[in-house]
Design a protein around this nucleic acid. Structure first.
Lengths: 185, 185
DNA sequence: GTCTATAACTTGATAGAC
DNA sequence: GTCTATCAAGTTATAGAC
């Protein structure tokens, strides 16, 4: 983790934002540079190619993922509840980065797909440790994949404006509780 | 449903295939024409613009969706089991078309997002009618969204090569059965 | 470190031949 | 119905000034 200039970070922020809000196609070097407030030449000083820019975002995601797993394990409300809640509210920097890289994974970016698969494996392992039963853990992680697909608009459109509401989380947690023996810790 | 020429259908097939296998960015008019075995000019005779091509695929999806809902309601194994099984095996023409349009929905195609949302609403309504409880229905549909996200590589990468196997479906159905009072019909 | 200018190529779309 | 030019605009990347 060498010292990274502010401009470099701004470029990554802009890249992620464009991927999320307008899709992979709109996230051109021109658009990213403009959104980051630098020229295209300036951008290409920090990231020598578009591929390097993609790699930069994937690296950022990997770092964030490790930190999030630690937070999940330490969460006072328990692993499952933390996991479900943060899958519905896609507003955290980590969630935003996931959505951005997920967009890249749909292209032909093998590295992006690999990074997403790594994260999902990590979730599965962590939830499995928490709930005991592998099949139950898989069902829970699948529901959260579904939440990302919906609230993050990972392809499913938004069928229900209420999908991400506080109340809907509670109802979903109640359904999940029916799958668990005692509590989801 | 006017009589559609074979070439027109081949173009739509090629477009969907490119979207699925290589992502939105690779699905250019050039690439689609080549894959369909026509020239770009030939393609543009059938679909006057790229937007018309997108609309053509969305229309095809809408037709398929109605037919699938009828099949789901008539399925001897029951709505829920039919729904889960067809979400895991993304090999049917309908599933392939869903994945293709989902890719478009991640760009800025409002119509594609709308079509996906319509389909999901239809699923939710149908499963809700079948299982009675809205919250349980939502949990089931979310799991299937998750399955699409995984097996269809809708952003989640493929974390588990076993995710789409026959055995994993049975285990998932067993977990879902725990949520249902009697049987999922 | 950041900019402008520009080169080389791709993409969507049009025109007109067959 | 389908093809071959051809075009304007957009996209990535390089070169060199500041």
């Amino acid at each position: 983790m060498a010292k990274q200039t502010a401009a470099r970070e701004r470029v990554l922020d802009a890249f992620a934002e464009l991927l999320i809000e307008e899709g992979e196609r709109a996230a051109t070097l021109d658009a990213v540079a403009a959104a980051a407030g630098v020229s295209k030449g300036g951008l290409l000083y920090h990231f020598g190619s578009k591929e390097a820019l993609v790699d930069g975002l994937i690296d950022r995601l990997s770092e964030m993922s490790e930190a999030d797993t630690a937070r999940m394990l330490a969460a006072p409300e328990g692993v499952v509840e933390y996991f479900v809640r943060t899958s519905v509210d896609c507003g955290t920097p980590f969630d935003r980065t996931i959505i951005a890289v997920a967009r890249l994974a749909q292209g032909q970016h093998a590295q992006a797909s690999g990074a997403m698969a790594d994260i999902r494996r990590s979730w599965l392992r962590t939830v499995e440790d928490a709930v005991g039963d592998p099949d139950t853990a898989r069902a829970i992680v699948l529901m959260c994949d579904g939440l990302y697909a919906n609230t993050g608009q990972l392809g499913m459109g938004v069928s229900d404006p209420d999908e991400g509401s506080d109340e809907s989380i509670e109802r979903l947690l109640a359904v999940i509780a029916r799958l668990l023996p005692a509590d989801g810790r």
